[in-house]
């Protein structure tokens, strides 16, 4: 089970959260002005990267807030969490420290 650093509550167990998929996909201001293909992309197409991706998370059984998180889809490491509306932090998986047995 993951420990997720809610920007409002601090580290809390994953069972309190709900993942809402890829972040920073803004709903178009005027949907009716968007063409079929672009609207299809908005609805259904996601990048699904191997590595760090920005995701929406809801602390539903906690403070009730949605926030964004950078999570490494390979290691499950949370690189950063940040409030909705804030820009994506300029960080990558390398910042997550891993001790070694060397």
């Amino acid at each position: 089970m993951l420990l997720i650093d809610c920007p409002y509550c601090g580290k809390r167990p994953e069972v309190e959260f709900h993942c809402g998929g890829e972040a920073h996909i803004a709903r178009p201001e005027t949907p009716t002005a968007v063409g079929d293909a672009d609207w299809g992309s908005f609805l259904y197409y996601r990048t699904n990267p191997k590595g760090v991706q920005a995701e929406r998370w809801l602390h539903g059984h906690g403070c009730g807030r949605w926030f964004n998180a950078l999570r490494d889809t390979v290691s499950d490491a949370f690189v950063a969490t940040y409030e909705m509306g804030k820009p994506r932090p300029d960080r990558d998986a390398a910042t997550a420290s891993t001790p070694s047995n060397a």
Binding site: S75, S97, T98, P99, S100, N101
Partner: peptide
């Protein structure tokens, strides 16, 4: 824990290589 094992010929054994989490053996 998803740590990577390393084969050590001297020890004739797989031993912990790179940790995937905050872990030490």
């Amino acid at each position: 824990s998803r740590g990577k094992l390393r084969f050590d010929v001297e020890l004739d054994a797989f031993v912990p290589g790179t940790s995937a989490q905050a872990e030490r053996s």
